[in-house]
Amino acid sequence: MFNLTDFLQFSFAGLTSGAIYALIALGFCVVNNTMGIVNFVQVDFVSLGGMLMFTALFTLGLPMMPGLLLAVAGVGVVAMLVERFGLRPARSDNHLVLIFLTVGLSIILRGIIKLIWGKNRMALPPLTPDEPISLFGATVLPQALWILLLTIVAIGLLTWFFYRTPLGLSMRAVASNPTAAAVVGIPAGRVRLTSYAIAGALGGLAGVLVTPITTLNYDVGVLLGLKGFAAAILGGFGSFPGAILGGVGLGLLESLSAGYLSSAYKDVVAFVVLLLVLFVRPKGLLGK
């Protein structure tokens, strides 16, 4: 017997984790579009977001919103340092070399996070107190609503930035044709730096939002990051609408298969569907 309340409950959970995957997937896409590489440091940006939020709240004693902004901006700055001092000195255009560098930098950053915050599991409080809300019969945590709301805000800001600012235009130009971008005077270095800042902020936001629901430790971003990576591929690697669609699609698949089949199989089902989609459409749902 089909139960609408159950369905809503599962869908809502799927949307929530889907939003997180979408944020991470967007981070992968931004760097891929301007540099043509997969940036594996993205997964650690997620962990770092949670860690910086923890420090902002409990060491600095900041309120929620300033803490969130500081954590997100902080990861953005760290991401810029990773590009400027981790990738650029390599002076390489070889994608394999650069991708390998991101793997190495990811391990280093994770090590630094472990050194600073330790290996213990920590807990972040939700943005607002956890009084479940009833929505069309389904029970929803306020944190889930925050996740959806702030994801939508982030996507809105990203769209504004890319389509309404000169730097955004420069970034789309580099993604579309790097040689042409150079001869009209667009500095590739600044564009790469900006794409890392954005990727860091997106990953950091995902981390701040999701760690009150999961737990917080130095490698919490790894599995989440892998899912975000999968979401980006599902949607068509590099496509922004694809990243959002892929993230939400993967989240819903996981949650519906956990709800209707068994939670033991949710990852398996999600990845089997991912493979099937890629067999039929190797470029992903919205890939070019």
Binding site: P166, V183, V184
Partner: peptide
């Protein structure tokens, strides 16, 4: 031809003003 194929015609021409009107993000 080295255009920006995925950008609009207007955006393509706007990139030609990068050196004239390129404002930093901070300014923006």
């Amino acid at each position: 031809l080295k255009l920006f194929p995925r950008l609009t015609v207007l955006d393509n021409v706007l990139t030609g003003l990068t050196c004239v009107g390129g404002r930093s993000m901070l300014m923006a």
